[in-house]
Design a binder for these strands. Structure first.
Lengths: 196, 196
DNA sequence: TGTATTTCTTATCATAGATCAAGTACTTCC
DNA sequence: GGAAGTACTTGATCTATGATAAGAAATACA
């Protein structure tokens, strides 16, 4: 786990082996079974989780008790409530494990230290934020404009590697439609002889 | 215009008067009438617009020719296609003037120079990205879960100062509903004796 | 291997919001 | 100040998606 994380950091952030050594003591790991809740609403999200194996998700729960999935994270992805983490605000999100997982996590301390160590890390972080914004922008656009079918087609396009690992109800939740609707959409696509 | 921008920068980014002097030649201004288009789909957004007076909006246009408003920007707000600006990609957005405007704009050059000049500017920029993400997160959550009425109530809550300046059809477009639906929502709210 | 649990599909009915079509009120601007 | 355009409302109808319920299929588990 820690090796995989180290490789990710060195490959992606431009930190050297030696620089990484100075951060090593700020890196923690954890194994968690499906169902484990890592963050609850109203808690302050003081960890950023990096998935080495398995799958996590973040989601909100509305007054009706329905959940709305915000993000999935599988191998080599990060997941956290960015706003809660950055602004020290209570989170509106839950994060839990949906496939047995090996997880590395860090605190703000890691980021701060890495940023002091290397300007490259600052750029890496900015890049990550920019990518995040691009992806959210696209999602907002889909939610404003697209039909259930278009949303689903876009999802399997942009999440090709993980689509087959996700229960359909979770995909439905991510798209903002009911599982029943998704089922209908898929039936209709099958009728039209659509090949995933 | 340039004075107002200077004040904004000095008040918000932690740059000194002297540091700002070194950036002054990278700041441009512009007056534009309602209807002026500042960015078109597929162009690369190489400017970030700062509104001194008036109002701009960014929006996409779908295959049906319908527009979907992504953002409004009034006094002391920025507007641009962040992804296009940062990644030099063709934009999916249009930006135009919806109320006669006085605008300041900068290119990447400004940002790069300012970041070299002061670490504070880097932090300011990160803060702006984080705030943007927080706001988008919230919007995604509303689009996933809320009814037309809830979306509208949240809008007038979070855009109190500009609500009365916007045509209802534009608010509807921002919310992802039709003007007719918005009209009905407002009628229903009036019936329930709602005071804005 | 069989039972329990979860996930997915299907069918029926209900509804929020869309669409279409007029009509009314407001702006704008010569 | 009146014509022309624009914005807003209202009504009638339609439709995509939601809600509910129940059965089928898949998976977990013991």
């Amino acid at each position: 786990m820690l090796e995989q994380f180290k490789k990710y950091i060195i490959d992606n952030t431009g930190l050297s082996e030696n620089e990484y050594k100075e951060l090593e003591h700020l890196v923690y790991s954890l194994e968690a079974k499906k169902g484990t809740v890592l963050l609850k609403e109203n808690q302050i999200c003081n960890k950023a989780f990096f998935v080495c194996k398995g799958m996590l998700r973040s989601y909100t729960v509305d007054e009706m008790g329905k959940d709305h999935i915000i993000q999935f994270a599988s191998e080599n992805w990060w997941i956290a409530d960015r706003s809660s983490f950055y602004f020290d605000e209570p989170s509106e999100l839950f994060i839990d494990v949906i496939e047995d997982a090996e997880i590395v996590y860090i605190h703000k301390e890691f980021i701060k230290t890495a940023e002091k160590l290397s300007k490259n890390f600052v750029s890496f972080n900015t890049l990550a934020l920019q990518k995040n914004i691009r992806q959210m922008q696209k999602r907002i656009n889909y939610l404003l404009a697209a039909t259930a079918e278009k949303k689903y087609l876009d999802f399997i396009e942009t999440h090709r590697e993980i689509t087959y690992r996700l229960p359909l109800q979770m995909i439905a939740s991510y798209l903002g439609i009911t599982p029943e609707s998704l089922s209908r959409v898929r039936k209709e696509l099958a009728r039209k002889n659509f090949k995933p």
